[in-house]
């Protein structure tokens, strides 16, 4: 066998292994997706949206409480996290630029993006739940907001830096003060990118369970009181899945399916917006 033949054979083997690993990986992932869709569609029904949680065995049980709770928690977290994240990103891109402080903030925020979310939960428990004396929707929303801020900060910073400096200079030359330049020129130029960042940030915290376990806790009943424990899809899913009751487990899969579709949808819309923005 010549050296060339040997190399060609080694090449085939190596590429074969790589393709094989791709197939194995995708097989596992599609197995999980398949289970999610089959189980989820199986358990979906209108009653899920009409009824709140009830003891196992009752026909009239649903996820209304968890769906509404999830929307409230994620909505509150968005209201807190998005403005702070965008403003912080604006500072880094427009004022801080390459200063040491700006770089330190970028680095720390990047690390925070991958920090264990359950630790954030423990922190919020100590500073919000303990002083208040009980679990609350506020605590859950604050925990989610803390996780969301670094994501929004990073995308805002990146997207604002993509806006050409000449645009800013042109606006300055017309006599606009800096805040007006940022609000009317820079933000407008980076609109699609910032929106994508916000959507991805919401998608990320929407799937978080760990930081909610001991902040917003859980509740099997419908509530809109922000000072009380608040049910969420993720924690409800967790509690139902580890319960020994078949009907609760079914509801758990329905919750998993609804949540995944919501998060995949946000991801896809975010990508489409970014693509549409690039094409322009």
């Amino acid at each position: 066998m010549t050296a060339t033949q040997k190399r060609i054979i080694i090449n085939r083997i190596a590429l074969g292994f790589s393709t094989l690993s791709a197939i194995i990986a995708l097989a596992f992932l599609f197995w999980i997706l398949g289970v999610l869709v089959m189980k989820g569609v199986d358990s979906l029904s209108w009653s899920i949206f009409m009824f709140e949680g009830s003891p196992p065995g009752y026909a009239e049980s649903g996820l209304k409480h968890a769906l509404v709770g999830q929307l409230i928690l994620v909505g509150l977290a968005t209201l807190i996290g998005v403005p702070l994240g965008i403003m912080a990103g604006t500072y880094l891109s427009e004022y801080g630029k390459n200063s040491k402080l700006a770089h330190t903030i970028r680095d720390i925020s990047d690390i925070m993006m991958s920090a264990p979310s359950i630790v954030i939960g423990a922190f919020v428990y100590a500073v919000v739940v303990m002083p208040m004396g009980h679990f609350s929707a506020w605590a859950g929303a604050i925990a989610l907001a803390i996780i969301m801020i670094p994501i929004i900060l990073r995308t805002t910073d990146d997207m604002l830096q993509l806006v050409p400096g000449t645009l800013r200079e042109a606006a300055f030359a017309l006599g606009a003060p800096k805040y007006k330049v940022i609000m009317d020129v820079v933000y407008r130029g980076a609109k699609a990118g910032i929106l994508t960042g916000v959507l991805l940030g919401i998608a990320r915290v929407g799937g978080e369970t760990a930081p909610l376990l001991f902040t917003s806790f859980n509740d099997n009943f419908f509530t809109t009181d922000l000072n009380e424990a608040m049910p969420s899809l993720t924690v409800t899913m967790f509690n139902y899945a580890i319960s020994p009751y078949d009907d609760w487990q079914q509801l758990g899969w329905a919750a998993a399916f609804i949540l995944s579709m919501f998060i995949l949808g946000l991801n896809i819309v975010g990508r489409l917006i970014l693509l549409a923005g690039k094409r322009k």
């Binding site: 403005p83 702070l84 994240g85 403003m87 912080a88 604006t90 500072y91 880094l92 427009e94 004022y95 801080g96 700006a102 330190t104 903030i105 720390i108 925020s109 925070m112 630790v119 954030i120 423990a122 922190f123 100590a126 500073v127 803390i146 801020i149 670094p150 900060l153 003060p177 800096k178 805040y179 940022i182």
Partner: peptide, 29 residues
Amino acid sequence: MIDKIFLNMTRTSALLILFIVAWIFVVLF
């Protein structure tokens, strides 16, 4: 004037990240 307020608001938000991270360590400790 508004310029200053805007700068201060954005700077406070950015510093808030550092503050939260430090606070997390202090509280857990």
